[in-house]
Design a protein around this nucleic acid. Sequence first.
DNA 1: TAAAAATACTCCATAGGTATTTTAT
DNA 2: ATAAAATACCTATGGAGTATTTTTA
Lengths: 92, 92
Amino acid sequence: MDVGRLRALLELARGGTMAAAAEALFLTPSAISQQIAQLEDEAGVKLTERIGRRVRLTAAGNALVRHAERVMAVLDEARSELAELRHEIAGE
Amino acid sequence: MDVGRLRALLELARGGTMAAAAEALFLTPSAISQQIAQLEDEAGVKLTERIGRRVRLTAAGNALVRHAERVMAVLDEARSELAELRHEIAGE
DNA sequence: TAAAAATACTCCATAGGTATTTTAT
DNA sequence: ATAAAATACCTATGGAGTATTTTTA
């Protein structure tokens, strides 16, 4: 359940191809493919299915996407709050 | 904002010493110390302060703990849901 | 046959361990 | 003098890249 891998899944959901996800994350399609495979390994369920040349998420994949979005939101909040605290400290 | 590092922070908050956190995570105190240092580096704020032989969290540290707890909760939910989906599939 | 994904293999970065030094009681 | 944390250094694992093979439109 690594954050980097969840991010890969999110980008894959967004773009629909390994190549698009790779570009968005400044990685190669190979790296994305491996990260998704690792997530599927941890999850013990298929998260994706190849539908022709594209990749479609399974029900489990979509479920995980929803959780991943929440994780990212919480991390964003954390970063924001830390940034505020950082500036408070700097300003006194 | 790696999940492993956030877990280290949580255990440090819980136990109050690097040693206790290390034991809880089956790591060495050195590893915990490094993970906390890395978190502080990312955050740009001190998260801990040595108070004698123990370690106490700063305000920023406590703030991050709250976010980390939420992250862990979301990940737990994700794992639960995936487990359910896995069993559904196995059962049909 | 072209375009994308998956796989095999290699290399390097980094996470963690051991050993040591520093800090505090 | 003891107990804990921090630091330095080393090694092994894993993540990403390149090259290749497989799949499908």
